[in-house]
């Protein structure tokens, strides 16, 4: 799963040592990796902390729409697969929180920011999963869009983030294939099952395209992020790539993409597609997504209701440490 930059903090130009700044820019321009203890400009640290923690939050919140179907998966095979996938998402969240922590923000601060509503996560998870076909559509489209974004981030300039992305990408491909397989099977099934698959595609197509973030002309930080190698391709470039590879996948199983404006453009060697409803996107970013409140309540409840487990582990560790000291 993945998130795009959703939250803009006001740019505060910190006064940086020009010599160090020039050396830093030169290293990044030469595709060198920056590691946690290296000098870095404050704006780089801040932007990365926000980007990586949003990405981590998206993985964690992303467990909720799919977790919703674990108990109702149609077979034991599907249940085992879905359980493994949701566990992977937890793992991805942990890799990313660890990477973000190396920049000096604690895990507790990040989780607090998520639960208080201060931090953002990918808008895609504020849509409900109403049928089993939604689980297929999420794997195929949402994880597909995530892969599109994450593959170039394996070469991002910040070492811990790049290494986390390598691990995530290795695991993400299974997610996408299991999702497509669900859709494939539904399309080979009864007309009712096929209708269910088409309905899921209809609902997830546009939110998936929105996952790449606002259009380039409305993405003011893109130039700096590209220069710093914390973004390697623009939102619109990635979105175009996603459309180009996904449309034939839909056609191959007899599904139609819900966009009357979609057609192959021979001269650009890609598809032209319809206008995205950016009003909807910004509304979801503001927290007006169909199940946004439910998602945050589920997160806070999980955190608060399980506090006793964390406290018990702390008490046990303290008791053992005390015994060791006494011995």
């Amino acid at each position: 799963m993945y998130t795009t930059e959703l939250q803009k903090t006001k740019a505060v130009d910190a006064i940086e040592d020009p010599e160090k700044l020039a050396a830093f820019e030169a290293r990044v321009a030469a595709d060198d990796f920056i590691e946690p203890k290296d000098w870095m400009p404050e704006a780089y640290r801040r932007t990365l902390t926000r980007q990586i923690s949003q990405h981590a939050h998206s993985e964690i919140v992303g467990m909720l729409p799919e977790g919703n179907w674990i108990g109702r998966a149609p077979s034991l095979r599907r249940k085992a697969i879905l359980l493994a996938k949701v566990q992977d998402e937890a793992g991805h969240g942990l890799y990313l929180y660890s990477a973000a922590e190396t920049l000096g923000t604690s895990r507790g601060q990040m989780i607090e920011a998520l639960h208080s509503g201060k931090a953002k996560y990918s808008t895609i998870f504020n849509y409900p999963t109403v049928t089993w076909a939604d689980i297929g559509a999420i794997g195929w489209l949402v994880d597909g869009a995530a892969i599109m974004n994450q593959v170039p981030l394996q070469r991002t300039s910040y070492g811990p983030y790049a290494r986390a992305m390598v691990r995530v990408c290795k695991e993400e491909s299974f997610h996408q294939r299991q999702g497509y397989e669900i859709m494939m099977h539904l399309c080979q099934g009864t007309s009712e099952q096929k209708r269910m698959a088409q309905d899921a595609l209809n609902r997830w197509w546009w939110p998936s395209l929105m996952m790449f973030g606002p259009p380039d002309e409305n993405s003011p930080n893109t130039a700096q992020s590209l220069r710093w190698r914390i973004k390697r391709e623009t939102n619109d470039e990635l979105r175009q790539k996603f459309v180009d590879i996904t449309v034939p996948q839909a056609e191959a199983i007899g599904l139609s993409v819900p966009d009357p404006a979609l057609h192959w453009n021979e001269s650009k060697g890609g598809y032209d597609f319809g206008e995205i409803d950016w009003e909807e996107f910004y509304a979801v970013v503001r927290g007006e997504g169909p199940v946004a409140k439910e998602r945050m309540k589920a997160r806070r409840d999980a955190w608060e209701k399980n506090a006793w487990v964390r406290e018990a582990a702390d008490a046990y560790a303290a008791k053992k440490a005390q015994k060791k000291q006494a011995a």
Partner: peptide, 11 residues
């Protein structure tokens, strides 16, 4: 390979 948070070595 990375890091984890835990209250003690066993966990």
């Amino acid at each position: 390979v990375g890091s984890v948070h835990a209250p003690d070595a066993e966990i």
